[in-house]
Design a protein around this nucleic acid. Structure first.
Lengths: 188, 188
DNA sequence: TCACTTATTCAATAATTATTGAACATTTTG
DNA sequence: CAAAATGTTCAATAATTATTGAATAAGTGA
């Protein structure tokens, strides 16, 4: 039984879908959730939960939570379709956008966790550096305080980077390549 | 029983150690491995496997694999200590360096996975766009081919970013902040 | 309001991933 | 070479995380 062209196309899509899903695990999503995104990426029209469920062969519950996760990061958005009670979803297809919002989120989170600790801990260390009873503890505390203080430069740097990514300023420094529209089989 | 200053210092360290470990999970390491790194970060001298094992309360096997993982990403290096048969380890304390090498590794990996798929799939789609039997398949294939082609711009962009991060060029665009040396209790 | 459709929550289960002790390999010392 | 010390591997287990069906909630139209 010979393969139809439509099947061949689907297989080509599937290769790409797997690759997209795989590349997304580095961004902390499971392969299943990655596949949901990738299926939406190729969808020609907004898909419902049930559409997606059929396509990825997962339970509706999993698709529901997966979709929510993707919406939280902005990779998927819900669209309203007149005359249909079901929710419809589409993928944000701009990889730049997806990358940047992931980075911004991650960097802000990191800065938050570290900054809170630095804020709490550095004064305690400075205090011990000045007032600890034995001189060895004072010395170590002073060294620790400097170490912790040094990390602040990193924190302000990643915030600058995050801000540049959020505002699009990053593209002033690293421009988007011209998009090579429509030409067959060439490479960078 | 009153707390000693040394204990107080250790507690302050522990807060920072937890925060560092927590911030590292975003980079794909487990909290345990993060703690190994953070303990080494504060260590005043190179530590052996057994030193670390005692400090983090894990099995030697886990510490061994954890350390290897950290060495693979360059966050920890092995140092040789004359007269001691044990291996000694120190942390790479430069957060900038750690961040950049993580990013470079991740971006290269992503580009590799996606590029391989694009390379394989785009010609197939172009072929179907030209030669598929029915016109609908031809149209969809053409659209898919464009979609896939469009992702190439993203791939070259992340490679530029990775290269700038690897070479240090990134700091020409986003300079490291002046490091605010030695001043007590101030903030950015 | 009721019957119906859809989406979400949640407790149970499945699957995955991390951790461990014990066995093994390797190196060093006497 | 034997004994001792160290690091690694690996199969078993523990812990974590993802997935599911069933129950619930929330909405919609007759």
């Amino acid at each position: 039984m010979p393969e139809t062209d439509a099947q061949r196309l689907q297989e080509a899509r599937d290769v790409m879908i797997s690759a997209i899903a795989q590349s997304m695990v580095a961004y902390g999503v499971t392969p299943s959730v990655g596949r949901i995104y990738a299926v939406l990426y190729f969808a020609e029209a907004p898909m419902t939960l049930d559409d997606i469920k059929d396509e990825v062969a997962m339970s509706k519950a999993s698709v529901s939570t997966g979709i929510r996760e993707l919406m939280d990061t902005g990779m998927v958005v819900k669209v309203w379709k007149k005359g249909d009670r079901k929710d419809h979803y589409i993928a944000e297809r701009d990889f730049f956008q997806n990358f940047l919002s992931f980075m911004v989120k991650m960097l802000r989170l990191e800065r938050g966790v570290l900054y809170k600790a630095v804020e709490q801990v550095e004064p305690q260390m400075r205090d011990l550096a000045d007032n600890a009873a034995d001189s060895e503890t004072r010395e170590i505390a002073a060294k620790d305080a400097e170490l912790v203080n040094g990390s602040k430069a990193y924190l302000t740097w990643i915030m600058r980077l995050a801000n540049a990514m959020e505002s699009g300023d990053i593209f002033a420094h690293f421009p988007r390549p011209e998009s090579d529209e429509g030409s067959a089989g060439r490479e960078s």
